[in-house]
Simulated assay, not measured.
Amino acid sequence: MKFQFGRSYSRMYISSAIGGELRSYMPREAGRIVAICVSPNLNSNPPKVILVGKSSDVEKRAEQFIQQAEALPAFVEIAPSQWMYVGVWALETATTDPAVIAREAAHVSRTDVVRVLYLKQVSQ
């Protein structure tokens, strides 16, 4: 399923098109991460900068995304139940450096961040 750049979709539509859970920031289908769905309330510059919170499931999905090394469709929440398609993004780098984490987390007043993922857009 092809998404239109800049158009918003519901999580139900995204899930029906490519699979994955309705609530995860990195939904999985058949053991594979299939999309990136992030909120600006929790991330300093989504999807370019994703803040990984201290939670077993959240951390496992970030690690899987890193290991999967695959460009994925990305969506940014623009309103409740509205997720704007912002293109296909891939991991550029990831860090657990405390200084970087503190700097990025300060943008959104988060104290639970354990890793920062930096992504790059590879296509629309």
Rank of each mutant, 00 (worst) to 15 (best):
M1I: 12
M1T: 14
F3P: 01
F3N: 02
F3S: 03
Q4Y: 05
G6W: 06
S8G: 02
S8T: 15
Y9I: 09
R11S: 08
Y13V: 14
Y13W: 11
S15C: 09
S16T: 13
S16E: 14
I18H: 00
G19Q: 02
G19W: 04
G19I: 12
G19L: 10
G20F: 08
G20A: 10
G20M: 01
G20H: 03
G20W: 02
E21F: 04
L22W: 13
L22V: 15
R23N: 13
S24R: 08
Y25A: 07
Y25E: 11
M26N: 03
P27L: 03
E29L: 10
A30D: 13
A30Y: 05
G31D: 07
I33L: 10
A35N: 01
C37M: 11
C37F: 00
C37Y: 02
S39N: 12
P40S: 06
N41P: 03
S44V: 11
S44Q: 07
N45H: 10
N45L: 09
N45S: 13
K48V: 02
I50A: 03
I50Y: 00
V52Q: 00
V52T: 03
G53P: 02
S55N: 15
S56T: 14
S56D: 12
D57R: 08
V58S: 07
V58Q: 15
E59Q: 13
K60C: 06
E63P: 01
E63R: 11
Q64A: 12
I66L: 12
I66S: 01
I66F: 08
Q68D: 06
Q68C: 10
Q68G: 05
A69Y: 07
E70F: 07
E70Q: 13
A71P: 13
P73C: 13
P73D: 05
P73T: 07
V76L: 07
E77Y: 00
P80E: 06
S81K: 15
Q82A: 15
Q82V: 06
W83V: 05
Y85W: 04
V88G: 04
V88K: 08
V88M: 12
W89I: 08
A90V: 09
T93I: 01
T95L: 08
T96E: 13
D97G: 10
D97A: 11
P98L: 09
P98A: 09
P98Y: 12
V100P: 00
V100F: 03
I101V: 14
A102V: 07
A102R: 13
E104S: 07
E104R: 02
A106Q: 05
A106D: 05
V108G: 03
V108H: 01
V108D: 05
S109M: 08
S109V: 13
R110K: 13
T111I: 09
T111D: 15
D112E: 14
V113W: 01
V113G: 01
V114R: 14
L117V: 11
L117M: 13
Y118G: 00
L119V: 01
K120R: 13
K120I: 01
Q121A: 10
V122W: 07
V122F: 10
S123Q: 10
Q124A: 14
